[in-house]
């Protein structure tokens, strides 16, 4: 029952998280920041806007991105297979990439292209992370991982690798070249407007839920540790977002892939000797 409610309200929780984050980030810069419910006010405003589309395919693929992401989150909450969830998440990313390419817009194409490249950087790390959990727990099932003890310590290097993935997924500095508002005006988002943009906006919130749900896996059955991890990562993420500048796409790939693969490999090698 609680799981169903969680799944149902996942986008809303993500919205609240996003609103909260904006306040935290503003306070770090000594600003007041928007109210907590600002994302929902935005949503309300978007409904009233006149609907513009470039072509129907584009809009449909955008909606499918949101739907698939919601299913991914549902699967994690229900405790399905971790590796499977990662691949299903790939499918949701693919929908938005296809949407980006389906319009004849330079910015949309560059954005979609960068999404593809970013996927190249983080996807192997996610797979290695899943393998790390498998070697430790003997199963890919999230429900089993959640029942076991915290695996933060034995998987610490993979945890560090995962930390580099989070800013990419949440479009945070220094790894936000995929969105890069000032240069490519939002990348794949650019041609969405009005009601159709709402789906993309909500998908963004779901991305928050996805990222933090995966983070909780490192805490296993330890709820205290999960909360601590969440708070630390949340603050760290926003601190880094405020304190760093965007780096180029090719640097992003080199850094994330290089660091991530090395850390992951060391971690898996270490696990095999235990």
């Amino acid at each position: 029952m609680i799981e169903m409610l969680l799944i149902l309200f996942a986008p809303l929780i993500g919205g609240l998280l996003y609103g909260f984050e904006r306040i935290v980030r503003a306070r770090m810069q000594n600003r007041q920041g928007p109210p907590l419910l600002q994302p929902f006010y935005d949503m309300y405003k978007l409904i009233d806007k006149q609907a513009f589309i470039v072509n129907p395919y584009h809009s449909i693929l955008g909606i499918m991105h949101f739907v698939t992401l919601w299913i991914v989150v549902a699967f994690i909450i229900l405790g399905q297979n971790l590796l499977y969830v990662i691949f299903l998440h790939l499918l949701s990313t693919i929908f938005i990439i296809l949407a980006g390419f389906s319009v004849k817009s330079i910015y949309s194409h560059i954005g979609a292209n960068r999404e593809l490249l970013a996927m190249l950087a983080y996807e192997p790390i996610l797979i290695m992370m899943a393998v790390g959990f498998f070697m430790l727990n003997g199963s890919f099932d999230i429900s089993i991982i959640r029942e076991k003890e915290a695996s933060l310590f034995p998987l610490f290097l993979l945890f560090l690798a995962y930390l580099t993935v989070i800013p990419i997924k949440l479009k945070k500095s220094p790894f936000d070249a995929t969105e890069a508002h000032q240069e490519i005006v939002g990348g794949v988002e650019i041609e969405f407007s009005g009601v159709f943009f709402e789906f993309l906006y909500m998908a963004k919130w779901l991305e928050y839920i996805f990222v933090y749900l995966l983070l909780f896996l490192f805490a296993g059955n330890n709820i205290l540790l999960a909360t601590a991890l969440f708070l630390i990562v949340f603050l760290l993420l926003n601190l880094i977002d405020n304190a760093t500048a965007r780096i180029k796409m090719n640097h992003l790939i080199k850094i994330v892939l290089g660091v991530g693969i090395t850390l992951g490999m060391c971690n898996l090698l270490g696990l095999s000797y235990v």
Binding site: A51, F52, I53, V54, I60, M64, Y107, S108
Partner: peptide
């Protein structure tokens, strides 16, 4: 999910939504 995409492509045309050209700065 995969099956529904071509179906939507064929049926959903968003007749009510206005068409725009792509944003080109």
């Amino acid at each position: 999910l995969i099956a529904v995409v071509p179906l939507l492509f064929a049926t959903l045309l968003f007749q009510k939504a206005d068409r725009v050209k792509e944003y080109n700065c």
